[in-house]
Every structure is written in C-alpha cells, then in structure tokens.
Design a protein around this nucleic acid. Sequence first.
DNA 1: CGCCTGTTTGTACAGTTGTATAGCATCTAG
DNA 2: CTAGATGCTATACAACTGTACAAACAGGCG
Lengths: 201, 201
Amino acid sequence: MTRRQPSAALRADDLTAKARIRNAALDLFAAHGAEATSLRAVAAAAGVTVGLVVHHYGTKEALREAVELAIVEQFAQTIASVPLGTCPPGQVTAARDRAVAAMLSANQAIVDYLRRAILDGSAGRVDLVSRLSQLSAQQVHDLREAGVASTKHTVGEQVVTIMVRQLGRLFLQPLVDRITDEFADDTGASMRPQLVVDVNH
Amino acid sequence: MTRRQPSAALRADDLTAKARIRNAALDLFAAHGAEATSLRAVAAAAGVTVGLVVHHYGTKEALREAVELAIVEQFAQTIASVPLGTCPPGQVTAARDRAVAAMLSANQAIVDYLRRAILDGSAGRVDLVSRLSQLSAQQVHDLREAGVASTKHTVGEQVVTIMVRQLGRLFLQPLVDRITDEFADDTGASMRPQLVVDVNH
DNA sequence: CGCCTGTTTGTACAGTTGTATAGCATCTAG
DNA sequence: CTAGATGCTATACAACTGTACAAACAGGCG
C-alpha cells in the first residue's frame, strides 16, 4: 500500500501519477466538458498512458467522481481554514466567503467545472451541486449552533444565498466581459461593468 | 429548388425534413451539448437517416451553424414583432423585453442551447453570442435614431444590460430552483426565491 | 414516355472512443 | 533470495463517430 499524503494539495507540480491524472482531468473536463474529453487526452495531459488512467480509476465515470470529490474536498478545506474562533462572531460568514472567493479565483478550472456541472443538470448521477449544497447546509447548521447565524430565514434560503451570490457572479461575468470586449472600440474608457447577483426571498 | 417557406416558424409539426433535422438538432444540442450528440441521434430524432442529414448540411459543424442561425433569426423576428410605433416611445424597450422573455420561456431548447453557447466560449468559430450582441446593438442603434433611447450610456453598456438582464436570470434560476428543491422538506411553505441580476456601470 | 433535379436510403470506411488484458519494472515483506 | 504486490506500458477489441458515395425513389417537364 502506498502512503497516503496527509492532505494533498489540489495544485502541486510533483505529485503522484494518480493525482496528476485527476488534476489533468479536472482541467480538461473544465475546458471542454467531460463528455467531450477522451481518456487518452487526459492521459496525454498527465504524461501517462491510457492504461494507467483506467488502472487507477477503472472507469471514466469513476474518474469524474474523483474529480468532483476533489472539488468538494477543496471547498471543505477552504471553509475549515477559517474556524469559528478566529474573528468576531458576526464576521465569520464574511471571512469564509472571502476565503472561498479567493480559492475560486485561484482555481479557474474549478469555476469552469462548476459552471458546467450546474448548467448540465444531468440527472441520474450523484450530483456535485447537491454535495456542495449539503456542505453549505452543514456550515449554516454549525454557525447556528454557535449562535452566529440568524435563524430568521430557513436553511434553504441561506444556502441559496451563499451559493448563488458566490457562484452567480463567477458564472455570468464571462458573458459580461465578452460583450464588453465586443464593443471595446466603442469607447476609449474601458471599465468593466460589475455584476450584481442576488435573491429575493 | 424547393420553395422557401416565407418565414418558417421554428416550431411546427409538419415540416420539411431539412427543418425537422434542424429542430431535432437544436433539441439534442441543447439537451446534451453538440459535441456529445451524434449525427445518428439527430437523424433518429428527426425520423430520417444519417445520409440525409449529411446531404442537407454537409457537416456537423454546418448543422450547428444552421441551428445557431435559426436561433438568431428567432430573436430577430421576435424583436421585429414589436415595431417602433406600437406603443408610447418610452416603453418600446420594455415591450420588446417582454416579447423576448415570452419567446424564450416558450422555447426552452433555445435557452438551454444559449446557456451552453455562453458557457463554452469555444473560440475559433463564429460566435453565437457575438451575433446576438450585434442584434442587440442594432436594436439600440435604431432606438437611438428614433430618439427613444437615452444616449447617456455607451452602446456596449446598453447591450450588456439587455443581454445580461434577459439571460442571466434564465441561466441562474435553475441553480436556485435546484437548491430550493434540495431543501424543500425544510419548510412547508415553498415559495421560490427570485433572482435579481443586474450590472453596475 | 424519358430525362432531369432533388430527396431519401443504405452501406462502407477510417478514425476515435471506452474498456480489457497481458506483460514489464520496481519495490518491499518474509 | 524469492513471492507478491504495485505502478506503468503496450496492445487489442468492439462499439461508435463523422464523412463519403452509390443507388433507389419521387415529381415536373420536354
């Protein structure tokens, strides 16, 4: 049995081949979609052969699940990196939001993969959105038990707020940027419009 | 040469095979993505054989272009269905927005296809988002010439506002709905939160 | 009638896909 | 040292992909 790395970073340069495969898969799945990415492309990007990919993950679907699990794990670690006691009780949520935002802006592939996952809505398989929702729900639950989250709204409403506000901007901003670029010659001053995404409960 | 239908509706039940193929392709491309849809699946959905698809459109890429052109055409017709003179000058934009919203909510496949097109951002080919942007730009231009659109903002800003406000909600609402459903048992009252998408110029 | 133009089918082909399996190299436990 | 497990490669295979092409079929017109 190989020694497990204690808590493998999602991004590193010298990594076990299994992790390199998973990272390459994340990149390619995010860039072109999982269905449009061949195992051979993943293998080539990871610098290995197809056989090794299937040896480690067995199935393309299993590889996808491993990728999604790694994403969820990254979210969980990011949230856990801002424990309850580090800042004034009222600002724990804001601090965690900032941590997640920083993590996402450093991992564009995760953002792209999430965008596809949310867009696809392919039913039938265990859902990445569900797992992230439950992660958020757990967070809300913990914050409530610690008495630092309001109980005026339902858990569902708070989860929606967290995920939509966090992800909505990231998903829609590319559209805004592209249209802005399209009309860039229209005006000399090119200040990017900023998106506002929110929910009315 | 076949007689062109004067302005073929995108949805009709008895249609030329060429149009049936295009409609089936739109449905399948919207549902599973163009790359994940085989020409044979399109042919089967249209009730024809692969050969006919290739005969009419030559190439899968050409079929995709035909689908996108049909979408743009649908937008153009919808906008043109509310001419400048039909309502008080200040409300022509709002009326057109409503018409487009109605068209989109009646053609879920177009919404789904657009979502994928915006998400993909696959460079290299002529862009659907570009074409729609230019359609919006033309509309803004016409409205300005008629003196019913403010010139305080740039054309680019107005196009961004139109497209993001129209499409943003449609794209993000599925996420909201899914999370809401996930926590549906949390509360008896299940009123759907409504999204607010806007841009700060 | 035959001819012509366009629609539709059927089949074929090379390339790619996911998956399976056999083999080689490396390491560690006994 | 041997035995076995593990990381990894190479090759094979059936299914499916986009594309090509020939033949059958239809209707309009001389």
